[in-house]
Design a protein around this nucleic acid. Sequence first.
DNA 1: CGTGGTTAGCTTAAGCTAACCACGGTGCGTTAAT
Length: 513
Amino acid sequence: MDLTEILYQRFGYRNFRTGQEQIIEDVLEGRDVFAMLPTGAGKSMCYQLPVYAGASPVLIVSPLVSLMEDQVQQLKSSGEKRVVALNSFQDFEMRRSTLRNLSEYVFIYVSPEILQNKIVKETLKKIRFQLMVIDEAHCISQWGHDFRTDYLKLGDIREELGRPPLLALTATATAEIREDIISQLHMSNPSCHVYSVDRPNIAIKLEKLNSIEEKVKAIHHYANRLQGPGIIYFSSRSWADKMAKELESCGVGRVASYHAGLDQEDRLLIQQQFLNDELSVVCSTNAFGMGINKRNIRYVIHFHPPSTFESYLQEIGRAGRDEKRGIAIHLYTAEDEFLPLSFIESELPNHNQISRLMNNVSTRIGKRLTQKQYESEGVPLGLTETAWRYIYHKLEVHGIVQNDVIMNFQLDDKISRILDETERRKNEKIVKWVRFKSWLEEDRCRRKGLLEQFGELPVTIDPCCDYCGLTLKRYDKITAKEEKQVEGIIDWKDELSRMLGVQKEENSEKSTG
DNA sequence: CGTGGTTAGCTTAAGCTAACCACGGTGCGTTAAT
């Protein structure tokens, strides 16, 4: 059957979006494919459609449980019942019955971690996958080296599964990261589909301020005047909490804070409320966003800086998915420099910690070294959990630990090699942050500077950024309303809620403010 | 860098202050002990 025909019959679309058709064709040819499509460009279609053209079953590696559950729900509601996610949402009994009947499914979602489970892996090996997908593949580079090291084992897993064709999908990867992903996954002669990361409908504004108080003031100013809904990013949970309370009490509308300190239930609730337009603003840490498929986010403000260009692009890319205009505002002060640096310090072990831990390990050859031992080995050395996992992974890579057991090894040689690698890793991270920091301080077109990082040529668009001239008025609440009236556009959501007698936030806000 | 918690040390011995220091952000899976 013709691909366009499947697209229409299965998904109800007449036309492919940019890149989709070529990517799907390569996937169906059984090639390894690396695809970089801008946020919100319909990446999941690239593996969903092939299933109905014969590339079935498919194994999808996804970074977040909530993301998996989302995709499962979406596919189910579109009438596909042969879809399942293997993760900690399932209790023991459910997992057992899923594993027993695994061959009945055509879409199997998994986390990188659960692929390390022996029973899961053995069961998956019996299935002849026609395609393996790494969704949000930048996680390999962003998290795999320290935070979630199981991401670096995906290449081996793929071999163990009989080397099915691989599709890596992401929205943001610099040339370096693209190379890292391709090599980590052992992709062979991949067909690369790399599209512009630029989101022309998002204007960029950088604002240098002198103190944190000025930043707070600016947040109030923008939250009051800008057309929402919006996301404000912070680098600490306490700031997110604090500003959410403050903004709500100042009549901005309903504001929630979101971070990993909340329990799963609250996180889900806030996501749902935001999606349903019941919140004007979400104040969050970088925990919020991945998989948030909300089309009408109008602004993203950074109260604190992310530490890489990719993170920044991911975060601002959540605005304006409906193709209408959005704005990204970054507030910057001199002291912001220290937070990203302290994160880098804390996620990688230092010289002293590495050599002391390895000396200790060398005295216990033949014994087990398990993650549980972090309490007795890592904590006294002041290692964070991430730093501990990093070392553990290094010990595995260097063959010092095999199946949790400590092997005989050349202490001095291994120490110096692991120290070298760690030093290099730390430098890479610092360089990335310094590059981002200098972008914040440069006196030139923001968009050009941003696109250069991704190997793209300058473009001219309007409105572009504060350097190229930007009228904020276009993003104001009032303007958005006036325009609707002038252009005679009916906002169907507004209209519908009026008909149903639902009191909208915007209206109630006026009476209080 | 800024913040928040802890503690030493002071003095109308119970509560205050100043000095000091640790910490700050991402998620998976799993299990032992009530």
